[in-house]
Write a protein that binds this DNA or RNA. Structure first.
Lengths: 336, 336
DNA sequence: TTGAAAGCGTTACCAA
DNA sequence: TTGGTAACGCTTTCAA
């Protein structure tokens, strides 16, 4: 872009050195005791010439880009889009801009995103880590990059994170179903070694055990890359194989959507023939004919905390903080 | 980040100049006829020292950041999230990374985003422009910034754009309702001077006129910043004031959602008591008890074309291209 | 109170 | 074939 005007042009025009211009334009005229007359002249010249600072040059000189890299699984998924928005706004408050990447839960993609972003000298990274990327994160941290893990983390690593307390969330979700009178409760989860999924399943198991329903524990884990059709087929098979199931806990929003779709097609009545609790509600459930209980995450809190933990980390690399936030149990209901 | 290793370190280690290292690391060893022996040594040293290029320094030197600024209304809205994802992938193919911003359809926010991004020396900008920002765009273009407008544009400006042919889309959507036997068709739109909304309304009017239904033309325009509750109240008022209405065209996804919600609450039967067509379907409509006809935009095409038009523009600033793409009329149906 | 100049990490021109 | 070095635009130290 024809961003021709440099600090030097202003300096020449006013007849001073570039140092003076830099002081004034950065608001250090008091500190540096620049003459009032000159301050005014420099300001005017800057406006007249329509000076636009070159942040790249500034970054190179300062060693800080005022930039945060955000790596999510997929920005097209509303959960991550909403999170990104909160992060964007919170980051802007501290003068940071977002550079974005989607990993598709793929370790290789995540790796190349991390490389791209760190070459661009982002000041820090907020990452929703993909399965099997523990080493990537460990290496990155070792090289001194400030990192906050979001939505999931690696328990074996001492890295800052902001996540949901998934264990507790599932535990209470199942408790809710049990209180409603369901006993044969199954769970539809994703196939993933990541802590968030393990804890969602773990909380379910624990709740069943606590209620003396261990014998009814039934979990199916669906691969992330399954299509909608494949997912519905798998759920169908699961229910065919376990006809005694009275209620289902879905581990993510997209699984809930696929599940409800399937239930709709089959004409299974909710909640009479099947009790339902799902993670991460969205407006879609408002249109479902029956109220759906939802494990809702505190999105705004997750986003703002992630940014704040990161900026703290940037100014003090030893300040590692870990949040496991609480969920809400909400009811999505078309008549509310 | 402790990204200590510079080209100079490699040069020192191997005992050559930085120039040679730069050539080799940029794959210009053939062109510059660097000795095979040295090439190998330099490559090895780079790996051994774990050299990570500093893209900031490179950008300053080259005058190109390989960065695209993307300004949407709100990345939390799935329509824009999906678009962003397509753009991210397409941009990556040409080595570009995305810097993101949400304008909230607000001229001031958009202005400061444009400033932030252009100070960061993005190579080009893809913008979903807010109402009343014609001058911003004109000035930006005058200063030489490559710009592609997306989703909407300013007819009075000669700036590249990639949009839907909204006029035709509404025209055909209304035609569809008329073919189904509806005559008293109302429209729920946003209050906006932007071309996309004007065309969506214009196509509706034209279709009504063509079918000799001019007297039934009824449009309500809802302010963008209305809450869900306010929106539903306004729709209720509109329908109370126009009890003869048999069908509705909703100008956006969120208006459709609000409208269907309201219709659900009131127990109005679709399509017997009310025919519906909405823009930009999403999975929510799959759960609605009746099939909903949807004006669907070619998201992938809009995204990829936006990137390609922009990269063309970056290499040739005179290459202004305008796309008005065609929609699909789809049916979202829970049994499909 | 002001200015000269070094330096951030790269690239690429020009010379050897 | 190889290397010295200027330059990208800015900030900041040091000297005047």
């Amino acid at each position: 872009m024809g961003n021709r005007v440099r600090i030097k042009d202003i300096a020449t025009k006013v007849g001073v050195s570039t140092a003076l211009v830099s002081y004034v334009l950065n608001g250090k005229e008091k500190e540096k005791r620049v003459g009032n007359e000159l301050v005014k002249k420099i300001r005017e010249a800057a406006i007249e010439l329509n000076y636009q600072p070159n942040q790249i040059a500034r970054s190179l000189r300062n060693g800080s880009t005022k930039t945060i890299g955000l790596i999510v699984a997929d920005i097209a998924i509303p959960f991550f889009g909403q999170l990104a928005r909160v992060i964007e706004d919170e980051a802007a408050k501290s003068g940071y801009t977002l550079i974005l990447g989607s990993s598709d839960e793929d370790a290789n993609k995540q790796n190349s995103l991390i490389n791209t972003l760190s070459h661009r000298q982002v000041d820090g990274l907020i990452i929703v880590p993909a399965d099997g990327t523990c080493n990537q994160i460990a290496n990155l941290q070792k090289r001194g990059m400030p990192i906050v893990l979001m939505d999931r983390y690696f328990p074996e690593l001492n890295v800052s994170h902001v996540c949901l307390n998934n264990y507790q969330a599932s535990y209470e979700a199942v408790g809710h179903l049990i209180k409603k009178g369901f006993q044969q409760i199954g769970m539809i989860a994703y196939q993933s070694g990541m802590i968030h999924m393990r804890e969602r399943i773990g909380g379910y198991r624990k709740a069943m055990e606590t209620a003396n329903l261990s014998e009814y524990i039934k979990v199916i884990e669906i691969p992330y890359h399954f299509t909608r059709i494949q997912t519905e087929k798998t759920i169908e098979q699961f229910l065919d194989d376990n006809k005694e199931i009275e209620a289902l806990l879905f581990a993510t929003n997209s699984l809930t959507t696929a599940g409800l779709n399937f239930i709709n097609k089959k004409g299974i009545k909710v909640p009479d023939q099947m009790g339902i609790v799902g993670y991460d509600g969205n407006e879609a459930f408002d249109f479902f004919y029956a109220p759906i209980t939802i494990v809702e995450q505190p999105l705004a809190e997750i986003g703002t905390k992630s940014v704040n933990v990161l900026t703290d980390l940037i100014s003090d690399p030893t300040k590692i903080i870990k949040y496991d936030l609480s969920h809400f149990l909400n009811i999505r209901n078309s008549s509310s």
